[in-house]
């Protein structure tokens, strides 16, 4: 694996001027983190905590007051660093006068692509994001979910190694949200580095390898997701088809053991989102779609 981190943010500080140039507002305060190549990293925090400013600094859209941001070792204030990045902003609108296909072609041309390569890439990306049928429609007629997916396609057009996603499922319904998350899984499988900003914690938990928690401009926690959310002094055992007698014996065993406390037992719950997906998709098609099938398989494996 390459030693150069995909993303390096070192002691980043960003101040903004207050109204009429009075005073300074510190949006990001001494934030440092690294994202290794091939990793999915989630930056979470409440609204106004500095997530988007950190992303913008990484993309060179704002200039850091202090500190360094780099992408694959290249200073992110330099235009060259953006050869390796694909970016999807929160609630993107793009040019409404362009069709889905024209949009991808436009962004591809900006990256120096042309001819048959661009044509082929455009069609492949439209297929990847499931918008082949809507490729000739103008974006003015796209739903929010479709706009997010075309946004993902434009972000991927020049084959970047790093994908930066700002609230990729904001304002999208649960089905669209699931499709976008599934795309992130696909990209992760193919070795893309993904930097994700969101305040939808379940989404981050599902896709990210590592997370950072940013609050009032400062990075308060950072590390591997599994390490951060594990409750060290508790153990979870999930049984299938356990009889009441077996459960009684387990309860008794735990009660007889010194210092051991049985905290909880009962049926595990699914989430409302999974229930919603199952009910809506099954009602519409009478069978599971590939996204749901993947989910069901994952649920089955974890049981």
């Amino acid at each position: 694996m390459s030693d150069t981190p995909a993303v390096q943010v070192k002691s980043l500080v960003k101040d903004f001027r207050g109204a009429f140039g009075r005073g300074m507002i510190r949006a990001v305060n001494d934030v440092s983190f690294e994202i290794a190549s091939g990793e999915v990293y989630g930056l979470i925090g409440p609204n106004g905590s500095g997530k988007s400013t950190t992303m913008k600094a990484l993309l060179g859209l704002v200039t850091p007051t202090a500190g360094i941001c780099s992408i694959f070792g290249r200073d992110s204030t330099k235009v060259d660093s953006r050869q390796e990045v694909g970016f999807l902003p929160e609630n993107p609108y793009f040019y409404k006068h362009l069709s889905g296909e024209e949009t991808i072609r436009f962004y591809g041309k900006l990256c120096g692509m042309k001819g048959a390569v661009l044509r082929e890439r455009t069609l492949e990306l439209l297929k990847l994001v499931g918008l082949e049928d809507a490729r000739k429609r103008r974006l003015g007629g796209y739903s929010k979910g479709m706009l997010q997916r075309i946004g993902l396609a434009q972000a991927l057009v020049q084959d970047p190694r790093l994908l930066i996603l700002d609230e990729p499922t904001a304002g999208v319904d649960p089905i669209g949200s699931r499709q976008i998350r599934d795309l992130i899984f696909k990209l992760k499988d193919r070795g893309f580095t993904v930097f994700l900003c969101s305040h939808l914690l379940e989404q981050v938990q599902e896709v990210c390898d590592r997370v950072g928690i940013i609050h009032k401009g400062s990075l308060v926690r950072e590390g591997r997701l599994d390490d951060l959310i594990a409750i060290e002094d508790q153990t979870e055992i999930v049984l299938r088809n356990a009889t009441p007698e077996l459960l009684k014996r387990i309860h008794a065993l735990a009660a007889n053991e010194e210092g051991v406390e049985l905290v909880r037992s009962g049926n595990p719950r699914t989430t409302l989102e999974r229930l919603f997906l199952r009910e809506t998709i099954q009602r519409d098609s009478g069978k599971l779609n590939p996204v749901q099938a993947i989910w069901e398989q994952r649920e089955g494996d974890s049981k």
């Binding site: 913008k56 993309l59 060179g60 859209l61 235009v79 060259d80 953006r82 050869q83 990045v85 694909g86 970016f87 999807l88 902003p89 929160e90 609630n91 993107p92 609108y93 793009f94 040019y95 962004y107 900006l110 990256c111 120096g112 946004g151 434009q154 972000a155 020049q158 930066i164």
Partner: peptide
């Protein structure tokens, strides 16, 4: 306003 500028300047566009 539409954040289209972000997506353009996030590409290698001076």
């Amino acid at each position: 306003e539409d954040r289209t500028l972000y997506t353009i300047l996030a590409k290698p566009v001076p």
